[in-house]
C-alpha cells in the first residue's frame, strides 16, 4: 500500500485518471437525474428520431424550410418570434433559403418604421435586417386577443422546456377528447401531454391544412415534425457549428493529451530511474 503510494504518479496515470473522470461525472449526473425525475408528471412524451440529435446531428434542411412555412402560415397568427431576423433564414446552418428568397420573404411583411421627418410612424416592406414581425404589438394585446393567455414567444421555446423538441412535438399531437369525468374549463382544450392536461391553445394542425412548397404531403405528423425542427433551429441556430467545432476540438485535445503524456513519461523517467 505504502509502496504504491510512493511510486511517483505516472505508472498509475490511466488508473488514477479513470477514477478522477468517473468522479468528475458522477455528481452533475446525479443532480441532472434528480431534476429529470421531477418532470415525471403526466405521460411519457412521444419520442421522435430527430436528425439534430447526437454528436454529429445536423438539421434536415428541407424540414426546416417546411417548418418555416408552417410557422408562417399557422403559428405566426398568435406566436411571435421576436429574436429572429429575416436574414437568419439564409444563414448557414439554418433553412438556408437563398438570399433572394429571404429578401422576398422579408418584403412580403409590412414593417413599422419611423419616425420620419414629420415625426410620423410609417410602414414599409420588410428588409433582411428586420426582426420577424410580431402578431401583436405587446403582451397585453396578445393576452386580450387570446382569452387572457399569452401565446409564448417561440424564439427559444425549445430550450425553455425540458426535452423541448419531444415536448413540443407531443403537445402538437396530444389533442384528444377529454376522458370521462374530466372537468374542462371553458375556452380550454384537453391535451394528453400538457402538465395538468389543460391547454389554452386549440388544436391547429389538421391533415392537408396547407400545401407544402416542395410537394410533401402535409399530414399532421409531418407538420408537427417540421415545425419542431424549425423551432429547434430557432432556439439553437449555432447547433451545427457547435457539433462540428466540438468534434475537432475534442479530437485535437486527445492528440495533444497523448503527446503531452509521452513527454511527461520521458521527463519523469529521469526521476524514477534514479
Amino acid at each position: 500500500m505504502i509502496q504504491k503510494q510512493l511510486i511517483t504518479g505516472d505508472n498509475f496515470v490511466l488508473k488514477k485518471l479513470k477514477i478522477i473522470i468517473k468522479i468528475l461525472f458522477i455528481y452533475p449526473i446525479i443532480i441532472v437525474s434528480a431534476n429529470n425525475s421531477m418532470a415525471a408528471e403526466g405521460l411519457d412524451l412521444l419520442k421522435n428520431k430527430w436528425s439534430f440529435e447526437g454528436l454529429f446531428g445536423t438539421f434536415d434542411r428541407a424540414s426546416l424550410r417546411r417548418g418555416y412555412q408552417v410557422y408562417n402560415e399557422v403559428c405566426s397568427g398568435c406566436h411571435s418570434m421576436k429574436l429572429l431576423s429575416y436574414r437568419n433564414l439564409s444563414e448557414k446552418g439554418g433553412p438556408e433559403f437563398s438570399r433572394e428568397d429571404s429578401k422576398n420573404i422579408a418584403a412580403s411583411f409590412e414593417v413599422i418604421d419611423g419616425p420620419n421627418s414629420e415625426g410620423e410612424m410609417f410602414t414599409r416592406p420588410g428588409r433582411l435586417s428586420d426582426k420577424f414581425v410580431k402578431p401583436y404589438p405587446n403582451v397585453q394585446a396578445a393576452e386580450a386577443a387570446n382569452g387572457g393567455a399569452y401565446p409564448p414567444d417561440m424564439s427559444v421555446l425549445i430550450k425553455a422546456r425540458k426535452d423541448g423538441a419531444n415536448y413540443i412535438y407531443s403537445i402538437l399531437l396530444g389533442y384528444e377528447d377529454p376522458p370521462e369525468g374530466f372537468e374542462l374549463d371553458e375556452g380550454v382544450y384537453y391535451n394528453k401531454y400538457m402538465p395538468g392536461h389543460n391547454i389554452k391553445m386549440p388544436n391547429v394542425l389538421f391533415d392537408g391544412l396547407l400545401d407544402y412548397a416542395d410537394g410533401t404531403e402535409a399530414t399532421t405528423q409531418q407538420m408537427a415534425k417540421d415545425i419542431t425542427t424549425f423551432l429547434t433551429w430557432a432556439s439553437e441556430p449555432s447547433l451545427e457549428a457547435r457539433h462540428k467545432i466540438g468534434f475537432k476540438v475534442i479530437l485535437y485535445l486527445i492528440i495533444l493529451a497523448f503527446v503531452v503524456h509521452l513527454s511527461l513519461k520521458k521527463l519523469w523517467s529521469r526521476i524514477e530511474s534514479k
Partner: peptide, 26 residues
C-alpha cells in the same frame, strides 16, 4: 532506456510545444 536518443525526446517536446501553441492560437 540507457542510450535513449536525445533526438526522440526533443521531437516529443517540440511536438508538444507546437501542438500546444496551435491550441492556444485556436
Amino acid at each position: 532506456q540507457k542510450e535513449e536518443t536525445a533526438e526522440r525526446r526533443y521531437f516529443l517536446y517540440t511536438a508538444s510545444y507546437a501542438l500546444g501553441a496551435v491550441a492556444v492560437g485556436a
